[in-house]
Simulated scan of single mutants.
Amino acid sequence: MEIKPRDRILQAASELFYRQGIKATGVDAIAALAGSNKMSLYKHFPSKDDLVIAFLRKRDADFRAWFVAQIDGRAEHPQDKLLAVFDVIGEWLAIPEFRGCAFINAAAEFPLEGNPVHQVSAEFYDQFRVYIGTLAGECGIASPENLALQLSLLVEGAIVSEQMKRHSGAAEQAKQAASVLIQNSLNASNTTY
């Protein structure tokens, strides 16, 4: 089955944006890798910003589906799923193609909070925290949003640490810290009832 021109362009942009950075990647390079031209690129994406947003939205949908499937395939109980988050992240950090988190990278390249690229990146982590908070709530934790923020910070820190120094063991260290936070949250929730 032939890939549609729009999808080829988005695929090429995704590869280059992740590997080289958004600002370092020109539309000529994207069009060339997609086997297209700038006219076709702009027909499907009126601006580079539109292409960047499409890249991030697709990355969000793809990553979220993959991530949740990985977690669900490893654990049934919400507490075990919370810890499995760090196993899945650890495996992702270990792949040779790892270049950091596309959303953290994009937010760093577009640091102003009002920028649409920054906003889409922030939305990704907002949704990630909601997912973690839902699991924490299913464990009976009294303040699931607090634990979700704490665990999310551990994940984000592990990602950046691994990006800065490969094979750092950051995901395993984050998992150990997460285990303590989860247990403390469970203990605190059990004493309030």
Rank of each mutant, 00 (worst) to 15 (best):
P78A: 10
R74P: 01
V68F: 04
C101H: 09
V130K: 15
A84C: 11
L82H: 12
A108F: 02
S121P: 10
G90V: 05
K58Y: 01
L82C: 09
G137H: 15
L82P: 07
Q79S: 03
D126W: 09
F63S: 07
V68E: 02
A136V: 06
I71C: 04
W92Q: 15
K58R: 15
V88C: 01
D72H: 06
D60G: 00
P96C: 01
H77P: 03
A84P: 09
A75P: 10
V120G: 01
R74D: 05
F124N: 08
A69P: 05
E138A: 14
D87W: 04
P116N: 12
L93S: 11
F110W: 12
G137E: 13
P111Q: 08
G90A: 03
P111S: 03
E76W: 12
Q127T: 10
N105Q: 07
A65Q: 14
I89S: 06
K58L: 06
H77L: 13
L83C: 02
G90H: 11
A69C: 00
A61P: 01
K58I: 00
D80E: 15
F86S: 09
F63H: 13
H118F: 05
E138G: 02
L83F: 06
L93I: 05
P78Y: 01
F128R: 15
Y131N: 00
H118D: 07
C101W: 08
R57W: 01
V68D: 00
E123G: 04
V130W: 06
W66G: 02
E113H: 11
Y125E: 07
Y125D: 08
N105Y: 00
W92A: 14
H77C: 01
A136H: 10
F103K: 09
D126E: 14
E123C: 03
G73Q: 08
S121Q: 08
E123F: 05
F124V: 07
F63G: 01
A122Y: 05
V117Q: 12
G90D: 06
C139S: 05
P111M: 07
A122N: 12
V120T: 14
R129I: 02
F86P: 14
E97R: 15
D72E: 14
A61H: 09
D126K: 13
Q119L: 10
L112K: 12
A69T: 05
G133Q: 12
D60H: 11
E138S: 14
Y125M: 10
W66M: 14
R99H: 15
A108I: 03
L83E: 09
G73I: 03
R74Y: 06
F67W: 13
F103V: 02
C139M: 00
R129N: 13
F86M: 06
A106T: 07
V117E: 10
E113I: 04
G133F: 08
A84S: 14
V120M: 13
G73M: 03
D60R: 12
T134D: 12
F67V: 11
A136N: 11
P116E: 06
C139F: 00
Y125K: 02
L83H: 02
C101Q: 11
S121D: 03
S121N: 11
V88P: 04
C139I: 01
A94F: 07
H118Y: 03
I89N: 07
R99Y: 10
L93A: 12
